[in-house]
């Protein structure tokens, strides 16, 4: 089978039991996507598949024939940071850094959802969403951070969203 990862087509013969997360980390060698719980509860493995954010630990690699996969490595590199990555550095939106790639991928997907006008549980107006702090916090709640950099993460995302 094959899928596109960060713009490059990859051929793969994954074990049918292998999660997309494990294939990315162990076979493709992209270890930027993290394994925290392996059961879709922490969000550290968040990536974008066909533009949507998903927990890559909760999906089997064999389900992704022809899919377009974007991981943290495809969002920006250490010497060419995406604006969200730069904002995380500026606002110290992390400490240990383990949940960080998932937070950033999740934020990329989340901002796109807002752009499409999707409302959330806390949206006051379902037809016109204003991306304030509570709205960001609600939409990012699938990404846990035990160092608890949450306020800084919200600041980082707010800066990019407002730009």
């Amino acid at each position: 089978m094959h899928f596109t990862i960060n713009g490059t087509v990859h051929e793969a013969e994954p074990d049918i039991r292998a999660s997309l997360l494990d294939v990315l980390r162990e076979h493709v060698g992209l270890t930027g996507t993290k394994k925290g719980c392996d059961r879709g509860q922490c969000g550290a493995c968040t990536i974008l598949v066909n533009g949507r954010r998903i927990n890559s630990c909760l999906t089997l690699a064999v389900m992704h024939q022809d899919d377009d996969i974007l991981t943290i490595e495809g969002i920006g590199s250490a010497d060419n940071l995406h604006p969200l990555q730069a904002a995380f550095v500026k606002h110290d939106g992390y400490q240990c850094g383990y949940c960080t790639p998932g937070q950033i991928c999740s934020a990329v997907g989340m901002l796109d959802e807002v752009k499409k006008g999707w409302a959330s549980h806390v949206s006051a107006d379902l037809d016109s969403v204003t991306l304030d702090g509570p709205e960001i916090s609600e939409r990012m709640s699938g990404n846990l951070c035990r160092c608890s950099a949450y306020p800084n993460i919200v600041d980082a995302i707010s800066e990019v969203a407002g730009a």
């Binding site: 270890t31 943290i72 490595e73 920006g76 250490a78 940071l81 550095v89 992390y94 850094g97």
Partner: peptide
């Protein structure tokens, strides 16, 4: 800013399981 920040936000900082 954290001096290793760019490595962490780009997923290039290697943790326990990730060393080649």
């Amino acid at each position: 800013d954290r001096s290793e920040g760019a490595l962490k936000v780009s997923g290039t900082a290697r943790y326990g399981y990730e060393h080649r």
